[in-house]
């Protein structure tokens, strides 16, 4: 990678697996679970968070020397809120149906702990370019989990991906349904999101023993 030094590319790659914001740092779970019943909202959510965290990290990093430390939480909240309003208005303008579907969860990006966590832990102490990479990396790590969960929940729950019936038609009994396959309606209900994430954590930690928690 000519553009990125080794240290910089680590900033992007680490959060994708061994330092994943959701499964390891336990941040940003709130919005991650509620919108993953289908793949499309999951991807939109991931892209929104990449945008907000990437830009927000740069802004905070540029202002890091002039923010009084006592009121930094409020400053950070205002920066995020502004960016989220931009995302919300863009979605309302170009994808109204989708923004209705995501309802309050776009607004809840403001209190997504990943964002505050990265501001506090990284942007306040590092330059703009590195903060940008860190922001994008962490948001990507968040997005990856969202897409995995969304993929399995939509595939197993409704037999579709992006709304296309890829397993055949459940009413006319074509494709897999012809041999007796049934959709697992449970997968689209909220509790299954938690259990799917639990299983992802399980798989990840059995592959990398260093991540196992002590008692």
């Amino acid at each position: 990678m000519g553009l990125l030094s080794k240290k910089d590319s680590k900033l992007i790659l680490d959060p994708l697996s061994d330092d994943n914001p959701i499964t390891i740092q336990v941040l940003g779970i709130c919005s991650a679970l509620a919108i993953t019943a289908q793949l499309k909202p999951s991807i939109v959510m991931a892209v929104s968070v990449i945008f907000v965290l990437g830009i927000g990290n740069v802004v905070i990093s540029l202002m890091r020397n002039i923010i009084p430390s006592k009121i930094r939480i409020i400053v950070q909240l205002i920066v995020v809120a502004t960016l989220v309003i931009i995302v919300d208005l863009i979605l309302k303008a170009f994808a109204y149906e989708l923004s209705k579907e995501l309802s309050v969860f776009i607004g809840l990006i403001i209190t997504n702990c990943i964002i505050m966590g990265r501001f506090e832990a990284f942007a306040l102490g590092n330059g703009p370019w590195r903060s940008f990479l860190d922001g994008v990396g962490n948001a990507l790590g968040y997005g990856v989990i969202l897409v995995i969960v969304g993929f399995f929940r939509e595939l197993l729950g409704s037999g579709t991906l992006f709304g296309f019936k890829i397993l055949g038609d459940s009413v006319e009994k074509t494709g897999l349904y012809a041999i007796g396959y049934e959709n697992n309606g449970f997968m689209v209900l909220p509790p299954m999101a938690l259990i799917v994430v639990g299983i992802i954590i399980w798989i990840q930690r059995s592959r990398n023993k260093a991540l196992i928690e002590e008692l």
Partner: peptide, 20 residues
Amino acid sequence: VPAPLRGLGITFIITGLMAI
């Protein structure tokens, strides 16, 4: 609890069961 599930993993799954 199986070692890889310890802590966070099992908490997720319990929360899922409670939600059900």
